[in-house]
Simulated assay, not measured.
Amino acid sequence: MSFDESAFNYKISSDHKTGTDLDILKRLFGNKKFDKTLDVAAAAGHCAKIFNAKQYVVSDLSFNMLKEALSDWPVPSAVKNCAETLPFKTQTFDLISCRIALHHFRDAEGFFKESSRALKNNGFLVLIDSLVDIEDAYLNTIEFIRDPSHFRSYTFKEIVNMTADYFRIDFMQLLYKKHNFDEWSKRLNPSRERLEKISQAFLALPENIKHELSLEIADENILSYTDKKAVIILRKL
């Protein structure tokens, strides 16, 4: 189970190739033009393509993810690297984006510090990720069962605290995203045993958490669940 082995699944994923979050970015940035942008943990490049730039750079730890990002979009430069140590000169980019990936980073504050360094003064950091409340530790546990590379989804307060030394928040919008359980649970090509563990973890949730996640179940089969996402636009201090 790895992102290299499942890269194409992310390219065609309904959770990634479309979404209200991307529509918000189009609305906010549709009339802006940038010299150079960077998409961190770019996966198949769905977010990177939103922005209008003279030069695009996409980065990811997975070589096959980068191949998918460039397979039908030969314009950008691609760099294989981890998000916490960006191999770029100080004040290189006008905008850095990171979509549905922060929860994988072992040093989220390190990523924010590096993004601030690599951004030009007053540059944008566009962040989209899962957002949890204090009781949603249950979902962090289930995410880890599904994907051992999952580290942690954060509360909004935690994100504010991690970014306060480097950025101000220009915009924030909370979204509720409904996930088709079959597609979501199988995206990383799990074994039958892991699939069963994921299902059982959902079924064992307390009733109030099932309600919080709008869990849809039919005959002990999970159909969907809904989590929270945040679109956060930050500006370098």
Score class of each variant (00 low, 15 high):
119 L>D: 01
119 L>T: 07
120 K>Q: 09
121 N>L: 09
122 N>E: 10
122 N>W: 00
124 F>C: 07
125 L>W: 00
125 L>C: 08
127 L>E: 06
127 L>H: 03
128 I>G: 06
128 I>A: 08
129 D>L: 14
129 D>Y: 08
129 D>G: 09
130 S>A: 12
130 S>L: 14
132 V>F: 06
132 V>G: 10
133 D>Q: 11
133 D>K: 10
134 I>R: 06
134 I>W: 02
134 I>P: 07
137 A>Y: 04
137 A>C: 09
137 A>T: 14
138 Y>V: 12
140 N>I: 15
141 T>C: 01
141 T>H: 07
141 T>Y: 05
141 T>V: 11
142 I>F: 01
144 F>L: 10
144 F>C: 07
145 I>N: 00
146 R>N: 06
146 R>V: 15
146 R>Q: 06
147 D>K: 04
147 D>A: 10
148 P>Y: 03
149 S>E: 06
151 F>V: 15
153 S>T: 11
153 S>L: 02
155 T>S: 10
156 F>P: 06
157 K>N: 11
157 K>D: 14
157 K>V: 15
158 E>R: 03
158 E>S: 10
159 I>N: 00
163 T>R: 00
164 A>G: 00
165 D>G: 11
165 D>Y: 02
165 D>T: 06
170 D>N: 14
171 F>W: 03
172 M>I: 14
172 M>Y: 11
172 M>T: 11
173 Q>W: 01
174 L>V: 15
174 L>I: 15
176 Y>H: 14
176 Y>D: 14
176 Y>R: 15
176 Y>I: 12
178 K>Y: 07
181 F>M: 01
181 F>R: 06
183 E>L: 03
183 E>C: 03
184 W>E: 08
184 W>C: 13
186 K>Y: 02
187 R>N: 10
187 R>Y: 03
188 L>W: 05
190 P>F: 05
190 P>I: 07
191 S>F: 08
192 R>L: 15
192 R>P: 07
193 E>V: 12
194 R>N: 13
194 R>C: 09
194 R>Y: 04
195 L>E: 09
196 E>S: 10
196 E>V: 09
196 E>G: 00
197 K>H: 06
197 K>T: 09
197 K>I: 05
198 I>W: 02
199 S>P: 01
199 S>V: 02
200 Q>M: 12
200 Q>W: 00
201 A>M: 02
202 F>H: 02
202 F>Q: 04
202 F>M: 10
202 F>L: 13
203 L>G: 03
204 A>M: 05
204 A>H: 03
205 L>V: 07
207 E>D: 15
207 E>A: 07
208 N>H: 10
208 N>G: 00
208 N>C: 08
208 N>I: 12
209 I>W: 03
211 H>R: 12
214 S>M: 05
214 S>L: 05
215 L>E: 05
218 A>E: 10
219 D>P: 01
220 E>F: 03
220 E>A: 09
221 N>S: 07
222 I>V: 12
225 Y>H: 12
226 T>Q: 11
